[in-house]
Amino acid sequence: MTTFTETRIKIPMFSPSRVWTIATGTMTQLVRMKTFYFLLVFAVLVAAIGNIDIKSASSVSQLETIKKVSFGTMDIFAWLYAIVATALLIPRDLEDRTLYTILSKPVRRIEYLIGKLLGVLVLIAASLALMFTLCLLMLAYKQSGFIADEIKMLQAAPNVTTAEIEEQVKLIQRQGVRPELAVAALASFLKSSVVAVMTILISTFASSSLFTIITSIFFFLIGHAHGMMTDFWLHKTEGNLIIRMLTKVFKLLIPDFQLFSFSEGIVIGAEVVPRVVWSMGFLTGGYLFVFLLISLMIFLYKEF
């Protein structure tokens, strides 16, 4: 009999294929848990948004409203999905003891964590892509309708040159489908990625999905508003030392989610600065790295 050790098994330090196995397992799990049904809800919402009819608003501002509301909803759905889907993973694996069987296979705990995160991220990306497509379709549909109406109206009016019609059409198009909107969707993705990794971190020490969801939402709110809260509380409680310290601590420990809300400006029509978008991508990478590291520090010593 060969003495067991190096002879039979070579286990790499880090195996992308194991990570991918866990990631695809996670995706199948979430898909088959029907978490994607929220996309149906989203589709219904977008359809409803598309039918908001503001009597006294111009077509330009109606289009803008549709765009803002649908992209805003998309952003909310993305981070909510990131929290809920992620929170369903690790605590559930633990409850079902599936985690035991996985971790008793030659799988490193870091691979498990990365696999779970990767699975969630791929799903978030996929659902964002779907939602984005829905938004674009709705926008394109509304836009073409508005343009047709506008042209009809202007052609009926006296003394309108084609150049002037074009100008009006351009005005509408400015609020319609534009390539920059993809960057807005990307912004939502970056935000949800950070939300997902934070949720993973919380779920490494949480004991239930519900606790994870509530805690994550709580930190998300703080992380989204701490800049503003600092302002608010400091103003109200003029230099209260404890509060000042507290907000500093919050700022240091909790991700600044508000910074990731740059889809809002882009949707309204702000110019996209590619350098800044790249930087935000790197910042997201930093968050993913550090939060994964911390998750691992907890998870590595966790006993099941």
Binding site: K251, L252, L259, G269, A270, V276, S279, G286
Partner: peptide
């Protein structure tokens, strides 16, 4: 937090200027 806060502050300023962040 210490490392990212200056980066984030500068990014916030840039995005505010560009109108990306409200």
């Amino acid at each position: 937090g210490l490392v990212r806060s200056p980066v984030e502050n500068s990014l916030r300023r840039k995005m505010n200027t560009a109108g990306m962040l409200l």
